[in-house]
Design a binder for these strands. Structure first.
Length: 673
DNA sequence: GACTCGAGTCCCGCC
DNA sequence: GACTCGAGTC
């Protein structure tokens, strides 16, 4: 298929700043890949092109498509990576300027939580005053706008902010002490490196002549600065995005970067892609109507060619009924309309919603894949094993040490560990260095003394080998020496659970094996960094399992960038979409939820079904729900009195009449247009 | 120090 | 309903 005029223009504008405003389904990916190919055809060397995306999924996809277009085998390739991998590459060379070890570790979400918890304990914050999750959220917000702990403390107004800023200081100190960085630091430190060391900056900026940024509406303040720093010289910057699909405000993304592109790059050309090749006109009508309720946006509307049937709304009694109805619907279509399971996606707002659908899909024997959610790396046993491995790579990693120091039990209970930690703080030494002389600081029981001795001996000898030997064998030895299998048996009486958990442990070893086969010089540290950034091959294969013939179950956030012939958006209720937490953030929060809804609707190619349950289990009890305000906006029923009720979050509860499409209360619900 | 039990809370989305 | 936390017991 030929490119349309707007797409062609975006592909052909090779020099200077370019903003491609690409609505949903307008062929953005095609434009990006054609553009990369065109640059190379025009004589630009591939390795002078840098393309940055936000997710591994997007990077993999772009790389795949670009190499398919460049049929001739070439030695050189464009660099296509996520912001985070790009920063890791830059930091690996320059981070020592900032006082971090060149072999810095990257903390994942679990590590962050442990550090946050420890920081809160250190400042003796009452437990209820500030939870680790909220602290991390605040820290991340500060970091994305480059606020230091000192600045945070200076501007803190409420008690909570004071607590949080104090904990932020500890948190950052703990990271630094362990020679580790979190995800926000990757970006922040790169920015700092560029600012403080102009030669490092220049060196990096000189590597490329063309920079392409995908999903530009999702850039946060730091990413924005990195982009500017990299493209400021050659000014060949192409950014692609859609302000209506900005759904990452909660992690610092600022729509205004895309809205103000022309101000930053005055000579910029703007190309709008508004012809939608994905969805039917009926689906787009709903999408356009919905998004028009937002104020902060480039005014635009998508045009479609194809005709289809109007979207449907299914209303069920409970969330179990909802799952049953949706799965029955899918199963029927597969059976009678010759659809493939892979044609269907079920999109949810939260990670908890898929449970009911999983159970139902299994029962109906419909193949499915669950994307996102509880990752392999969130499992306790996986975290334990990884903590041991991290400790091998970096004995200063206190988070990991604390995690495994008494797993399996070695007579080092919480009280003893606390005293050891206090001693370490007094001495200004990492805990690891204190262990050999622990006796001098605290009274150890004989069991604790042997425990410490064995742990040190084991880790000490393996850590030495970890610097030169391939890691899979080391990991196997470590797990055996620690007696982790026995520990699983001890902890979980149920043999099935033991086996399941042991399988996860073996999975970690397999992942290391896969890494060994892939890496040029496989070392433990390299494996750990890979894992922190992008998960294992298993994880990535799960992405490619999108191609497997299975119904896809995932969150709306995870669905961005994908498309499916048939989409089911479930849980269309006030409190869920829009989420009740968003309502507290004022108008901007609701507008982001509306964009999220828009993203969901525009994933559908041929058929869209929205569903809701009249009651939903919350905190163990079924509670009445109210239809999402977005249903009324989508269906053009904003004059419905029930809409005003929805806008107030469903109050008063007594108003149970007039739901969109006025359905009967039949268990199977009823289709409406 | 390890385990059990009851009270209290309610972590949205992710690289 | 699921989970964490703290108090109480062996």
């Amino acid at each position: 298929m030929k490119l349309n005029a707007a797409q062609q223009e975006a592909v052909d504008t090779l020099a200077g700043p370019l903003l491609v405003l690409a609505g949903a389904g307008t062929g953005k990916t095609r434009v990006v890949t054609h553009r990369i190919a065109r640059l190379i055809q025009s004589g630009i060397r591939p390795n002078r092109i840098l393309a940055v995306t936000f997710t591994n999924k997007a990077a993999d996809e772009m790389l795949h498509r670009a190499s398919a277009m460049l049929k001739k085998r070439r030695r050189e390739r464009p660099e296509i990576s996520t912001f985070h991998s790009l920063c890791v590459r830059i930091l690996r060379r320059g981070i020592s300027h900032l006082g971090y070890p060149a072999q810095f570790a990257i903390c994942d979400r679990g590590d962050q939580e442990s550090i946050a918890r420890a920081a809160l304990r250190e400042i003796k914050a009452p437990n209820s005053a500030l939870r680790p999750g909220e602290l991390l959220y605040r820290i991340s917000r500060w970091k994305t706008v480059c606020v230091s702990p000192t600045q945070a403390a200076a501007t803190a107004a409420t008690d909570k902010e004071h607590l949080a800023s104090a904990a932020f200081r500890r948190y950052q100190a703990a990271l630094r002490a362990a020679g580790a960085v979190d995800f926000d630091d990757l970006l922040l430190l790169t920015d700092e490196l560029f600012r403080r060391f102009p030669d490092v900056h220049q060196d990096e900026a000189d590597r490329f002549d063309h920079l392409l940024v995908d999903e530009y509406q999702d850039t946060n303040a730091v990413q924005y600065r990195i982009v500017k720093a990299l493209a400021g010289g050659h000014r060949n910057l192409c950014v692609v995005g859609d302000d209506d699909q900005s759904i990452y405000g909660w992690r610092g993304a600022e729509v205004r970067h895309i809205l103000r592109f022309k101000r930053d790059w005055p000579e910029a050309k703007i190309v709008r892609l508004e012809t939608n090749y994905r969805s039917t006109r009926e689906i787009l009508d709903w999408a356009n109507r919905l998004i028009a309720f937002n104020h902060l946006r480039h005014d635009k509307a998508l045009h479609a060619a194809a005709r289809g049937e109007p979207p449907r709304v299914l209303q069920l009694q409970t969330e179990t009924d909802e799952a049953e109805a949706v799965v029955a619907d899918i199963a029927a279509r597969i059976a009678t309309e010759k659809r493939r399971p892979r044609d269907f996606a079920i999109l949810c707002r939260t990670n908890e919603q898929p449970r009911a659908f999983e159970a139902e899909l299994r029962r109906a024997e419909v193949p499915y894949v669950l994307l996102g959610g509880m990752s392999f790396f969130d499992r306790k046993e996986v975290r334990d094993v990884l903590a041991y491995l991290k400790l091998l790579a970096n004995p200063r990693d206190e988070v990991s040490l604390l995690r495994v120091v008494n797993t399996p039990p070695r007579g080092l209970g919480p009280a003893l560990v606390r005293r050891l930690l206090e001693a370490a703080v007094r001495e200004g030494k990492p805990l690891w260095e204190l262990l050999p002389v622990a006796d001098r600081h605290v009274a150890l029981t004989p069991a604790a003394r042997t425990g410490i001795g064995r742990l040190r001996e084991l880790l000490g000898s393996l850590a030495h080998r970890a610097r030169t030997e391939p890691p899979a064998r080391l990991a196997r030895e470590l797990i055996a020496e620690v007696g982790y299998y026995d520990e699983l048996v001890r902890q979980y009486p149920n043999p099935e659970e033991q086996q399941a958990r042991w399988a996860s442990v073996e999975e970690v070893v397999n992942a290391i094996g896969a890494y060994e086969r892939r890496a040029k010089k496989p070392l433990l540290a390299g494996f750990l960094r890979d894992v922190a950034l992008s998960g294992t091959d298993e994880d990535r294969q799960k992405e490619s399992k999108l191609k497997r013939d299975a119904v896809v179950l995932m969150t709306l956030h995870a669905a961005k960038g994908l498309e499916f012939p048939e989409v089911y958006m479930v849980g269309m209720e006030e409190g869920l979409l829009p989420h009740h937490r968003a309502a507290g953030e004022g108008g901007a929060g609701i507008e982001e939820e509306r964009r999220l809804c828009y993203v969901g609707v525009t994933r559908a190619q041929r058929r869209l079904t929205l569903s809701l349950a009249l009651t939903r289990l919350k905190w163990g009890k079924p509670r009445p729900t109210h239809p999402s305000r977005f249903l009324y906006e989508l269906a053009g029923q904003a004059d419905n009195p029930a809409y005003a009720v929805a806008m107030r979050g469903g109050e008063p509860k007594a108003t149970k009449s007039r739901r969109p499409g006025k359905t009967s209360r039949g268990k199977r619900g009823r289709e409406t247009g």
